[in-house]
Design a protein around this nucleic acid. Structure first.
Length: 416
DNA sequence: TCTGGGGTCCTAGGACCC
DNA sequence: TCTGGGGTCCTAGGACCC
């Protein structure tokens, strides 16, 4: 038996947890740069669609007195950690699937619903975040039960597949696009072939599904039939690629500013590389103009191999800038840069290069550890490389950010 | 005129997720 | 004026090997 626990309107719930005035009030949270809506409280869902560009909905924000926040990922990440720790104290085995979701292994529990209700109550009390829980034999069905729990108040936030009386009826009224791993593309293809609901999908021809939707499609229909195909994954595996990308606060045309941004993004990616104690062998850079604008468009990317797998930041920045200069073209207004660290290895597995026998891993390691430590203590970018720039005119805008209540001494909640 | 069979690794692109 | 960011997995095709 597997449970999927999913925080309700997570980012909005985080904002609300520290601000009682927001209770029962509509809230939306905006993406970086205050670009589009990435979370809505239930009160806001009526008025604002998911992903809505913020500037197009200024009037609605005002008219319905919606509380608008810039994303505060430091806060959300910290709250997520607290929620996950509590849930982990209720089960041995758990897979953190995203910032606000986890699959729990409920094997062996006699009263899984009661157990989850207890867990749910503790999470709510300790963090203020409401969680919905779906329990089923497979991940796909647990996802569906989770939706069911969210949509039906009388469940108390916890719902089990085997308690559903008319399963066939339920699946027949469930559009295929609501099934986990059935996205936009597949929905169109399924609809063209006369498959509209979960029941039809479950009974579709398996070899046709295999051909059209690959092994993932086949697994999905098995999971609907209560045959588990997606296992509980182990957390803690190092990431296979680390991305840092950001839109600019304003368009950037000159190379110097792009260089600052790329050096800054690489530094962010390097922080994550350090956290998982890895080395990387390739650095990727791309730059792109604003596709929403009626101006000349340009996109290019490049992957630079490093002579030796490393976690030495100056070398990563160096490679990225080298790549950037190769793809940069004058005369365009750039909107966004993306950087990635690829070819990620655990440091123990790194081959000591025969080409550079003098590479001093000991020295760079202590230097990198020192920078990491200081930045952890005194804040990111306390120590940084000069190539990341001082003025940073390309920085994103965040005009409506809430305080980092739980991770910054200067921003603690004040109680009067 | 004739031109195998079986395998691995890498990459790009597509689709999906939150 | 203003339209997010960070991941995973699968597949097909090319390069290369014996």
């Amino acid at each position: 038996m597997i449970a999927l626990a999913d925080c309700n309107n997570f980012y909005a719930s985080c904002e609300r947890a520290f601000n009682p005035k927001l209770r029962n009030k509509p809230i939306v949270v905006l993406s970086n740069n205050d670009g589009c809506v990435i979370a809505r409280s239930s009160e806001a869902k009526k008025y604002i669609p998911m992903g809505a560009p913020a500037f197009k909905y200024k009037n609605e924000f005002k008219r319905y007195e919606i509380n608008v926040y810039s994303a505060n990922f430091t806060l959300y990440g910290d709250i997520s950690g607290r929620v996950m720790r509590i849930m982990h104290s209720y089960v041995q085995d758990m897979e953190i699937y995203s910032i606000d979701e986890a699959f729990l292994n409920l094997k062996g529990f006699r009263q899984p619903v009661d157990h989850c209700k207890k867990m749910r109550a503790e999470v709510l009390k300790a963090t203020g975040v409401p969680v919905s829980i779906g329990i089923a034999p497979t991940k796909t069905l647990a996802k569906l039960c989770n939706h069911y729990a969210k949509d039906h108040k009388e469940t108390g936030g916890v719902f089990k597949w085997s308690d559903l009386e008319d399963k066939e009826g339920y699946l027949k009224q469930l559009p295929v696009e609501e099934i986990w791993n059935v996205g936009r593309r597949s929905t169109v293809k399924l609809n063209i072939n006369g498959i509209y609901n979960a029941y039809q999908l479950m009974n579709a021809n398996e070899s046709w599904i295999r051909n059209e939707f690959s092994i993932t499609g086949l697994r999905t229909i098995s999971e609907l039939k209560e045959i588990p195909c997606f296992k509980l994954e182990q957390n803690g595996d190092p990431r296979k690629g680390i991305t840092s990308s950001r839109s600019f606060g304003r368009a950037v045309t000159d190379l110097t500013n792009l260089e600052e941004a790329v050096a800054t993004y690489i530094s962010r990616a390097w922080e994550k590389l350090m956290e998982q104690k890895s080395a990387c062998s390739h650095v990727y850079v791309s730059i792109v103009t604003n596709r929403h604008k009626d101006t000349p468009q340009y996109y290019n990317s490049i992957t630079i191999p490093l002579t030796i797998s490393t976690w030495y930041l100056p070398e990563l920045i160096d490679a990225a800038l080298k790549g950037l200069r190769q793809i940069y073209k004058k005369g365009y207004s750039y909107k966004k840069a993306t950087t990635m660290l690829l070819g990620i290895y655990q440091r123990g597995d790194v081959n000591l290069s025969l080409i550079e026998p003098d590479y001093d891993f000991k020295r760079i390691n202590s230097l990198m550890n020192a920078i990491e430590k200081i930045n952890k203590k005194d804040g990111s970018e306390s120590i940084k490389y000069a190539s990341t720039g001082i003025k940073q005119i390309w920085r994103e805008k965040k005009e409506m950010k809430s305080p980092r209540y739980t991770t910054s001494w200067n921003e603690l909640l004040t109680v009067n």
